[in-house]
Computed example of a mutant assay.
Amino acid sequence: MDLRPATDQRDAGEHGDNTADGVVPAGRADRARAGDGGAPRWRERVTGGRSDFLRAAVTPRLIGLFVLLLAAAIVCVRLGAWQLDRAAIRGAAEAEQGHAERLAADPVPLEDVLRAQTSFTAEELGRSIEVTGTFVPDQQVLVPDRAVEGQDADLVVTALRLTQGPDAGAMLPVLRGWVPAEAITTDGGTAAPADAATAAILEVPVGERTVTGHLGGSEAAVAADYPDGMVGAISSAELANLWGGPSFSGYLVEFTQAPDGTRTASDGAGLPHAPPPGMAVDTGLNIQNLAYAVEWVVFGGFALFLWWRMVRDEVTYRREEAELA
């Protein structure tokens, strides 16, 4: 027999102390009713599968965070692209400055920069060098279809046989200068000066001489029929087959340097010098700006990763709460 007062018995019934008759405690009943201020509705939908991640991701709070972090990621990617552009611009500017410095530098011996039968690299392009040898009178060709100073021109390339240094005896093609295209005639299938003045400036210098100039990289040979005395490109390999080797993998763009160090526009015979070789097309990227670009992209990826971590943590929390419910 229950000896408690009737009031206590009623209180016990009201507060759910007696569960023998299947009466659910009031607190649990409230939590079990979704939307009545008890347990959230999502507890009923926790399955332990992938759908839990989708339900968690589409909650208003995580959607708002996704929009915010996505905007941050887009800003980071845009900043990375801007830094990449800056890397290209600064890389090109540095390459241009370096090329100009190589062109303006005092000549150094050829063997200090390039040796016969070795590969030509971007580091040698435009280097100012000096070399001693003799021009071979019957080893001179014209390269047509070029433009110099806004007019059609034929380049004048002559073989220089080195007489000093470790590569004595090797052949180095020398771009001595250029003449207007109309100054050359190809009547009879042979390239020849159109007048006596052109013939005079095309005469090959005789005797040993020290030649100064800029190094240029060998051009690709052109497979086409040209008149005798003409070739389609300044190709070291083609000229070596024509004149004999050993040879160099580049050629020399001659310039005339006065005793005071100034450089003249033509040689002593009046042959105009060709422009120095241009810098390489691939100028590279500025390393510092490239690193900044990579950092911004990483920051953008981290923003999205942070949102995914929030979704994963939310799913973990929900599953733990569902097990305790």
Rank of each mutant, 00 (worst) to 15 (best):
D2M: 09
A6Y: 08
A6W: 10
T7D: 14
R10H: 09
D11M: 14
D11Y: 12
N18D: 15
D21S: 13
D21K: 14
V24H: 03
A26I: 11
A26S: 10
A29W: 11
D30H: 15
A32S: 10
G37D: 09
G37F: 07
G37V: 02
F53R: 03
P60S: 12
I63A: 15
F66N: 11
V67G: 13
L68W: 09
L68P: 05
L79T: 08
G80A: 12
A81L: 15
W82C: 01
Q83E: 03
L84M: 12
D85V: 05
R86M: 12
R86H: 09
I89Y: 06
G91H: 06
A92K: 13
E94Y: 06
E96R: 14
A100G: 14
E101M: 13
E101R: 15
R102I: 10
L103G: 07
A116N: 06
S119A: 13
T121F: 09
T121V: 06
A122W: 01
E124Q: 15
L125Y: 01
R127C: 04
R127Y: 04
S128E: 04
I129Q: 00
V131D: 04
D138T: 11
Q140Y: 02
Q140H: 01
Q140F: 02
L142H: 08
Q151E: 15
D152Y: 03
T158M: 08
T163I: 08
P166E: 04
P166L: 02
D167H: 07
D167S: 07
A168G: 01
L172W: 01
L172R: 02
V179T: 00
A181M: 00
T185P: 01
G189L: 06
A191V: 00
T198E: 09
A200F: 05
L202S: 06
E203P: 00
V204A: 04
V204K: 02
E208A: 08
E208I: 05
R209C: 04
G217W: 03
S218H: 01
A221C: 07
A233S: 14
S235G: 11
A237V: 15
N241D: 15
W243S: 02
G245C: 11
L252F: 07
V253H: 08
Q257N: 06
T262S: 15
R263K: 06
R263G: 03
R263T: 07
D267I: 07
A269K: 10
G270R: 10
L271R: 09
G278N: 08
I287L: 13
A293S: 13
F299N: 06
F305I: 04
L306Y: 03
W308K: 02
M310N: 02
R318T: 01
A322K: 05
A322P: 00
